[in-house]
């Protein structure tokens, strides 16, 4: 029930979540888990953006890893080959990918359903092939080494703890922006598009503009995440940004709840940490992802978090009914 009330008052939820992020490292005993938390934070940023696109607007993307990868590679190349500072890499990659997503988004988001899924998947694979083949820039399949560690305005983020707080700050910023977008005229237009494109357009919603807009925004989130990733790991290779990662991202959105920002973070946290905590899981990871996708879609098509919520509501209703039925006799 707490999640319920939090979703109604997202700003209260936001404050609580900030405090949670602030305190989380103190509950963690092993430094390795800070690593995991950082990756969770990075993934959450992408998944929040993807949820705006898939969950709120109803437009699927099976190629989001490409934007993540572009963010990582552009800053990585600028850093490793021309010793650019990270902030320059971020700005350049935001501008470049923003323009790219805009240009690609216009024809792509005219497509619906399966066609959109296949087109975004194709885009993801094309970008992946470029990561592999442009080896004079990207280092090819074996990867790009020598990316400078993060440093912003003279402040180095060289410890895991400092990096954790950096990622958290970006996560909170993304989250706040997204909460604002969702609870605005834009957010309503996006959900209206999801509900019925025809109805939205007769009310004056410029479908194409809003679809492309949210596509670009979610691409920019992914770019930011890629940037954080590249300067954290300092080594990137194409395999981190392939088709499977796009699928993982979609899984996170779906598990978390389509159309719930908290759900998106929950999904990212769950699926990022699961393999870390269950080492045995490793060989089964792919199969388990597949199985989870199928089961959630069959039994809780609104996502795990909302599914559980519905379940709780139903149980409460059932309890009330039982009470009512009993009360006349008692």
């Amino acid at each position: 029930m707490m999640t319920l009330s939090l979703m109604k008052k997202p700003l209260a939820g936001f404050v609580l979540f900030s405090i949670l992020l602030l305190l989380l490292p103190f509950t963690v005993t092993n430094d390795y888990y800070i690593n995991v938390l950082i990756i969770i934070g990075i993934n959450s940023i992408i998944v929040i953006g993807l949820d705006l696109l898939v969950g709120y607007t109803g437009q699927i993307s099976l190629g989001h890893a490409a934007f993540y990868g572009l963010g990582a590679y552009i800053t990585g190349i600028l850093s490793a080959r021309w010793a650019w500072p990270p902030i320059g890499g971020l700005l350049i990659s935001l501008v470049m990918v923003g323009i790219l997503a805009f240009l690609i988004g216009i024809p792509t988001l005219k497509l619906h359903g399966h066609y959109l899924a296949m087109a975004t998947l194709g885009l993801g694979i094309i970008v992946f092939i470029f990561f592999q083949e442009l080896d004079f820039l990207t280092g090819g399949p074996s990867g790009l080494v020598g990316i400078a560690p993060m440093s912003l305005f003279g402040i180095p983020f060289d410890s895991d703890l400092s990096y954790y707080y950096l990622v958290s700050a970006f996560l909170l910023a993304t989250l706040l922006l997204s909460i604002n977008v969702v609870r605005s005229r834009v957010g309503r237009a996006l959900r209206a598009i999801h509900g019925s494109e025809v109805a939205a357009s007769v009310l004056g919603v410029n479908i194409s503009r809003f679809k492309v807009g949210i596509f670009v925004l979610s691409a920019l989130y992914a770019v930011t995440a890629g940037w954080l990733y590249a300067h954290y790991i300092t080594f990137i290779s194409p395999s981190s940004f392939g088709f499977m990662f796009s699928i993982k991202l979609i899984t996170m959105v779906v598990i978390g709840s389509l159309g719930s920002l908290w759900g998106a973070i929950f999904g990212a946290a769950l699926l990022t940490s699961l393999p870390e905590f269950l080492v045995v899981f490793e060989n089964y990871e792919t199969s388990v992802f597949g199985l989870i996708l199928i089961l959630v879609m069959i039994f809780m098509p609104r996502g795990l978090m909302r599914g559980l919520e519905d379940l709780i509501k139903r149980m409460i209703d059932l309890g009330r009914q039982n009470l009512k039925e009993r009360s006349p006799t008692s």
């Binding site: 309503r188 237009a189 209206a192």
Partner: peptide, 21 residues
């Protein structure tokens, strides 16, 4: 919210201004 979408044309908030509230 349905009616609020109806007021889409009579309001202006865009991505940028809404995100920054």
């Amino acid at each position: 919210e349905n009616v609020m979408v109806g007021m889409h044309l009579r309001s202006k908030g865009g991505f940028f201004s809404s995100a920054l509230k």
